[in-house]
Amino acid sequence: MIISAYQTHIFILIFIYIILAVSLNLALGYTGLLNLGHVAFYGIGAYTSALLAIEGMPYLAAMIIAGLFASVFGYLLVTATDRLKGDYLAMATLGFSFVVYSLLLNLREITRGAMGIPGIPKPSILGLTVRTNDQYLIFVLLICAISVFIMYRIVKSPFGKLLEANRDNAVCLRVLGKNTFGLKYKAMMISAFFAGISGSLYAHYITFIDPTSFYISELILILTIVIVGGLASIKGSIVATAVIIYVPEILRTLDLPSSVLGPVRQALYAAILIAILMLRPRGIFGKVDLE
């Protein structure tokens, strides 16, 4: 392999987060749903897939079911927040993140609660086990490419244009006789499905998950990616993921005493993000503002 194991690891994380960020952008950027519950779908996917695989289910099946299961929660979330818009939707979906976190923590018979789940098996597809990180990188790249391609086709399709129309002017769209509620359901379910898939990829890569892996700090990370990359821009989300995951790693190599390196790294990272948003307030490739 031409790149080191460390770089392989970073690239694997980048590809996992690309799926996660692009799927959030589908709901947040394209459909205009201010969804702060995305991290919950990610967690649900990770737990579902991990638990099913430990029970002996083949990996691909576990991954698809993880996506579908997250999708079901996407449906439920829209059902519960149907009439909310903007900030109110944000609050309600943030609440959803808390509830799922609390469930993961307290449904101890199923999730082992705060103890987390160690020893999640590496994926095995048609008898071939993905053992090394290099193999995992190829596998993740493949899934990432397929997922992003599907989402790209969706946003470029007439259906995708309807989603954008719903974001820009829902009333107008309703006057034209379109079912805007139906659009919201579909968008959220697709978005949740891919979040579940990326959760599954994460769980089987790290092989250990616990509820804190799917909480506020992750939520902030993926929101940052989408906002820095620009709303309603798949390209933006991909570039931003690479930048946001890579920059802290570059900062690791700063030649500073260990006592200040940690905080300095965080401060510089924040400064870089602020600089990007000052230069490009709508994000790197952003075209729209969210009301």
Partner: peptide
């Protein structure tokens, strides 16, 4: 964070 721990370990190892 678990993810950071995995990253740090990967970095130190490789």
């Amino acid at each position: 964070e678990t993810k950071e721990a995995a990253t740090a370990m990967n970095k130190m190892v490789s």
